[in-house]
Nucleic acid binder design. Structure first.
Length: 524
DNA sequence: TTGTGTTTTATTGCCTCC
DNA sequence: GGAGGCAATAAAACACAA
């Protein structure tokens, strides 16, 4: 009705829109992009094409978006690093600046870039289990910084990403993460990241080759931070593990075959819940919009996606949503944290927690601009508590809860340690420290390629039920979408996925590793 | 409502790697 | 030389305060 006429008029506008110099990505697109970005900082061309098709964008746009996204991260990280460096450098926790490779000592921006980007790669791949988006990391970094500002010790309150972050925060300028000083070329040891195996869609080239190195750089930095507290073969940080949540290693999906979103969209699916949990920081302008959509406008989403290509309707929706955002802006608090840790509809759709799930751009700003007041160190526990409250409501999401309710202070114990990184890191560290120079970059690449192929073949199925189901599910999804003339939208998928996923995929944070572990074990 | 600052998008040029 | 990436830049879109 309204929609159809609107859509028609939009088609007219579409052509006009095309003439516009720039067109904002729709929330759906941004969501998908961010999600994808969480998984793949450097998507392959195929990924880009696929993503472009799904989002109704051009590959060029995708590439450009990723490029700018990386720049954005970089910029943010740089700012944070500078700020933190200023803050903490005086503390002298780590003074590893002797090489003179500081950002001002090297005219080559590329060097700094490598260090920098690699640091990010560390986030997404090196510490995969805690795969925390840069956006989220940025957020957390802010919080972290704010915590530092507030003078509260953030001891062990961060995940591994945080550890790295911490390295930066406590005086180690990310730009000083010079691999040559910390590590070995062998860092490229591929399968470090089982998920990386899945994510290996990208071919490490150029600075990506240094990824592994930087991973180790980060590890080294963390080690330095931890000092004697670091135990190579024991639980990280000498902290006891939390018992895994019930069914943590079980597929929560009763019928995996009917769980299209377990497999339908690997790139997105690849995103661990934690990475998914970064949503709040994604496209800050739309955060709340997403929430609203998720909770109320799902049907509109469908229409939205139907006209995903060059749709003004979306723009209208966006504007509406933005207006809604404005109207709802007054709400803020720990939402950044909460929704940041769980972007799923479980929260959004929680009638009691719409506000919780709601995370507006303004909130984001609040957390950044006024974070000192609003995001004190206790916010960590607060947000997790808050989170637990919500989580407790839904037993089905035990997995999610079991994982996400992790108190930031526990992240090391459960989230990080429990999962693969610990072993992976350790494993990786073995060659790093002992045979670190034994594996050539080429070998690493080959290994990565193998894993990539493997991952592509298996398409990240959790317990061995592989591509058939995946394909079937994907086909079914596509068919259904076609049936309704709705273009497959990553976000639409997300919506559904969220529904199924809270229980089924949360374990994927574990199972991802498991999966990858399985595949990697199969590989080797 | 308007001015200002910020963010996002698009473009271009350069660099590195294959 | 082509591909992919980053940096710089411009401009549109947006947020926010006065």
């Amino acid at each position: 009705m309204e929609e159809s006429s609107e859509l028609q008029s939009e088609e007219n506008k579409v052509s006009n829109e095309k003439n516009k110099k720039r067109k904002l990505k729709t929330p759906a697109q941004l969501t998908a992009l961010e999600k994808f970005y969480d998984e793949h900082k450097y998507p392959t061309e195929e990924m880009k094409v696929e993503l472009a098709e799904e989002l109704g964008l051009t590959e060029k746009q995708i590439s450009g978006w990723f490029c700018h996204r990386r720049l954005k991260d970089k910029r943010l990280m740089k700012d944070e690093a500078v700020a933190n460096g200023r803050q903490d450098r005086s503390s002298g926790v780590i003074q590893d600046r002797g090489s003179g490779l500081g950002q001002d000592s090297c005219g080559s921006s590329k060097h700094a870039d490598y260090r920098y980007l690699d640091a990010k790669e560390v986030e997404s791949h090196g510490f995969y289990n805690n795969e925390i988006s840069v956006a989220d990391m940025t957020q957390r970094r802010r919080n972290h910084y704010l915590e530092n500002v507030s003078g509260v010790d953030d001891t062990s309150s961060e995940s591994s990403s945080f550890l790295q972050e911490r390295a930066f925060a406590q005086g180690q300028d990310p730009y000083d993460m010079d691999p040559s000083r910390h590590l070995t070329p062998n860092g490229a040891l591929p399968p470090l990241n089982p998920k990386g195996a899945v994510n290996l869609g990208y071919k490490p080239s150029g600075y990506l080759k240094l990824k592994g190195e930087i991973e180790h750089a980060a590890i080294t930095a963390v080690k330095k931070q931890l000092g004697r507290h670091y135990e190579e073969d024991g639980p990280l940080l000498g902290i006891e593990f939390d018992p895994p949540p019930p069914g943590a290693f079980e597929c929560q999906t009763e019928d995996p075959a009917n769980e299209p979103f377990c497999v339908a969209n690997a790139p997105v699916l690849n995103s661990p819940e934690i990475s998914a949990a970064k949503k709040p920081n994604l496209s800050s302008r739309y955060d709340s919009h997403y929430t609203k959509f998720n909770s109320q406008d799902l049907h509109m989403e469908g229409a939205d996606f139907g006209s995903l290509h060059e749709s003004d309707f979306q723009d209208k929706q966006d504007k509406k949503a933005r207006q809604n955002i404005k109207q709802r802006q007054p709400y803020h608090g720990y939402n950044t944290h909460v929704s940041g840790r769980n972007p799923f509809p479980d929260l959004y759709e929680d009638s009691t927690g719409e506000a919780s799930g709601y995370n507006s751009a303004k909130n984001h700003r609040m957390s950044t601009k006024h974070g000192v007041e609003g995001m004190r160190s206790d916010s960590a526990s607060n947000h997790s508590d808050h989170f637990e409250e919500k989580l407790a409501i839904k037993p089905k999401d035990l997995m999610l809860h079991g994982y996400d309710k992790i108190n930031p202070k526990r992240i090391q114990k459960s989230g990080h340690v429990k999962s693969k990184p610990s072993s992976s890191i350790r494993n990786s560290r073995v060659p790093m420290d002992t045979e670190e120079r034994g594996l050539s970059a080429r070998m690493a690449k080959e290994e990565m390629f193998k894993l990539d192929q493997k991952a592509k073949n298996t398409y990240r199925d959790v317990d061995g039920r592989l591509s058939n189901e995946i394909l079937v599910a994907k086909r079914a999804k596509v068919d259904m979408l076609q049936q309704y003339h709705v273009k497959p939208s990553p976000v639409a998928e997300m919506e559904q996925r969220k529904i199924h996923r809270s229980a089924a995929e949360m374990p994927s944070s574990f199972s991802e590793d498991e999966t990858a572990e399985t595949s990697s074990s199969l590989d080797y």
